[in-house]
């Protein structure tokens, strides 16, 4: 049962990773990263039971918290980019530089 669940989670992780790699927009990637984080939390929880060490649920908890902070950091990064010094940065590299 736990095995089936963990396999399913792994498959989902692959899908999320595919989205993170392919993009195309930055937001897709951010979402994909977030999703992958969630899947990792799940995976850890399942594996903890699979290993018969449920006390390791602590770890899953920590991941969940950290994941949230990561996403907020990204959000803030974009807030500043758009309102602050966005004009300094081209969204795409200039042709000459590439």
């Amino acid at each position: 049962m736990f095995l089936a669940a963990s396999v399913a989670i792994l498959v989902t992780m692959v899908l999320a990773l595919a989205r993170a790699l392919m993009g195309p927009s930055v937001y897709d990637r951010v979402l994909a990263v977030n999703m992958l984080g969630t899947k990792t939390v799940l995976f850890l929880a399942v594996v903890a039971f699979l290993y018969e060490r449920p006390d390791f649920l602590d770890l899953a908890l920590a991941y969940a918290l950290i994941n949230f902070i990561g996403v907020l950091a990204v959000l803030q990064f974009f807030e500043n980019r758009h309102s602050g010094d966005a004009s300094k940065e081209p969204e795409k590299p200039k042709a000459g530089e590439a």
């Binding site: 993009g23 990637r29 951010v30 990263v33 992958l36 990561g70 990064f77």
Partner: peptide, 10 residues
């Protein structure tokens, strides 16, 4: 680089 950083998280 932003995408790279995101991927580093993964």
């Amino acid at each position: 680089l932003f995408t790279s950083v995101m991927l580093t998280g993964i």
